[in-house]
Design a protein around this nucleic acid. Structure first.
Lengths: 255, 255
DNA sequence: ACAAAAGTGTTGTTTCTACACCCATGC
DNA sequence: GCATGGGTGTAGAAACAACACTTTTGT
C-alpha cells in the first residue's frame, strides 16, 4: 500500500520531536454517523437531531461526530450513540463508508456509518437536551442534510435483508414481548401480512424464545403471553441462519 | 454530527484564500486496501505485493493506496486494482473499515477495505512490474503487515457467506466454464464434498447458465460441456437469493 | 352476549437429500 | 478393452404454504 509514496521524518509541532509521517498525502476528517432505529409497536422510527451549527443549521441530521485521535471507529460510534441516547451495549454494526469529495460543503469528510437497533422505550433524552433529538416515523422523514438520506435508505435495505435470516429484530423489543408484537414488527419491516400460525411455528422452532406465564393485556382482553429471549441460545445462534419469512417475501438485495 | 464543534474561516495555504474548515479536529490519512481473490481450478489465491518502502519494507501486503482529494473510495479502489492488475470492470465491493489508532506505526491511517473477485487468467502483471506481486494459495499465505491478516480473514468469511446465497463466484471463472469446475470452486470454498447430481440440479434451476455445444477435454477423455452465464438473467437475478449449498454446509456468520 | 384479539392442527405441495449406474473417450 | 471423469433419475423425508375455528375476557 501507499504506492509510490515514502514515509519520512517531520518535525512535530506538539511534542517538538521528529516523527515519521507519510509524505505528500492529504489528510482529512473522518466522521462517524449513526442510523439509530427503533420500533414503537406500530412504526419503525429513526432518531434524528437538529443541527445546532452551520452548515445546514437547524436542518435534521443523523447523529454523528468526528473520529478522535485515540479511538477506533467502533469506539466513536459507541461514544456518539451514548451521548445522544444515554445507552450502552446496544446493537451497533458498521455499515458503509461514504466519500463523495463534496458531500460536506465545508471540507472533505469521509463518513463511516453505523447502524444501531435500540429498544425505543429505553431511550432517554440526555439531560442536557443539547441535540434537539426527535424520533421520526420512517415514512415521515424530514429532509436530511448531505447524503444522510442515502445512508438511511441503505440501512433500511440492510436491515430488511439481514432480518430475514438472522434474529436481530429482537434488539428493537423490550425484554418481554408477545408474539403478536413480534409479528407486527416483521410485517412492518416488509410491509406484508404473514400468516400467524406459520409465523408462530417458525419463530418457536428457532428455540430462541422462552414463554413466560405472564400475559400482556394491553392489546386484547384475552391477553397475549409474554416471551423472552433465551440468552444462551440467542448468543449461540446469533450467527446461524434462520428463516423468519415466507419464501416469497424474502427481499432481493444483499448485505 | 460534528457535535459541539463549529466550522470557521481559515487561511488556505494553497489558494491563498479564506476557506471554511471545521475547527479543532484532527485530520488523518485514509487508505484503501484491496483483498484480491482468484481461483485457479484447485485453490483460492490471494494477490499480494511486496512493499518497496518502509515500514515493513520487503514484507508482503495487500495492494493499497491513499485516498486522493478528488476521488471517492470506490474510485480509489478501482484505481488501485487497475494499477496492479491492469483490469477494469471487475467485481469490487466495499467491505469494512479498520481503524485501530496504531495499526500503521508511521502515523494514523484508517483503512477502508474492498474485496475483488477476478478471473485469475485475466490477470496481467503490469509491465512496470513495480509491485513485485504474487499469487499465494490461501493456505500458504506469508505473514502480512499490519492488520492485513485480519482483513483477509474477514474477506474470506464474507465470501463464504455471500456465495452461499448469491451467484458471485462466477466472477472468478473465465467466460466459459464447466459444471465440474464450478462445483470444485464451491467445494473448495467450503472445504466439503457436494453430491454432483444435486449440485447440477440446483445450479441449473437458477436459469443463470447457458449450455454450450463445445466441450472442455482438458480434464477428461469424455469432456465436460462448457457453460456460460446468461448475462440477461445474471444481471436481473444478481441480487436474488439462491441456494447453492446443501443445508448443512451453509456457514454461520454474516455479511 | 358480543366484540376483539389470541391461540392452535391438518393437508397438499414443494423442495431437499441420499443414492448408483451408464456414457464417452483417449490411451 | 479399460480407466477416467462426465452425466443422469428416483424415492423417501423435510419444510413449507394455505387454510378456519375455538378460546378468553372486558365491556
Amino acid at each position: 500500500m501507499k504506492l509510490g509514496f515514502t514515509s519520512g521524518l517531520l518535525a512535530c509541532f506538539k511534542c517538538n520531536q521528529f516523527v515519521m509521517r507519510y509524505s505528500n498525502q492529504t489528510r482529512l476528517l473522518v466522521a462517524v454517523d449513526c442510523i439509530i432505529l427503533g420500533f414503537d409497536g406500530t412504526d419503525y422510527k429513526l432518531l434524528l437531531i437538529q443541527r445546532g451549527f452551520a452548515p445546514e443549521k437547524e436542518k435534521w441530521s443523523l447523529m454523528g461526530g468526528f473520529l478522535q485521535p485515540e479511538e477506533t471507529l467502533d469506539d466513536a460510534a459507541q461514544r456518539i450513540l451514548h451521548q445522544l441516547t444515554g445507552l450502552q451495549h446496544v446493537y451497533l454494526e458498521q455499515m458503509h463508508s461514504f466519500s463523495k469529495p463534496d458531500r460536506d460543503p465545508i471540507e472533505r469528510v469521509v463518513a463511516v456509518t453505523y447502524f444501531a437497533l435500540i429498544d425505543i422505550e429505553k431511550y432517554q433524552q440526555q439531560i442536557s437536551d443539547s441535540f434537539h433529538a426527535r424520533w421520526f416515523a420512517m415514512n415521515e422523514l424530514p429532509q436530511l442534510i448531505f447524503d444522510h438520506q442515502e445512508m438511511v435508505q441503505m440501512a433500511l435495505n440492510k436491515l430488511r435483508y439481514k432480518a430475514a435470516f438472522h434474529p436481530i429484530l429482537f434488539e428493537l423489543l423490550p425484554e418481554k414481548f408477545t408474539l403478536p408484537q413480534l409479528q407486527a414488527m416483521y410485517e412492518g419491516l416488509y410491509d406484508t401480512k404473514i400468516d400467524k400460525r406459520n409465523f408462530t411455528r417458525k419463530v418457536l422452532s428457532t428455540k430462541l424464545l422462552k414463554k413466560q406465564n405472564e400475559k400482556d393485556k394491553s392489546n386484547s382482553k384475552k391477553g397475549a403471553f409474554y416471551y423472552t429471549l433465551d440468552e444462551e441460545q440467542y448468543k449461540e445462534n446469533f450467527l446461524s441462519i434462520h428463516n423468519f419469512l415466507p419464501r416469497y417475501e424474502i427481499p432481493a438485495g444483499w448485505d
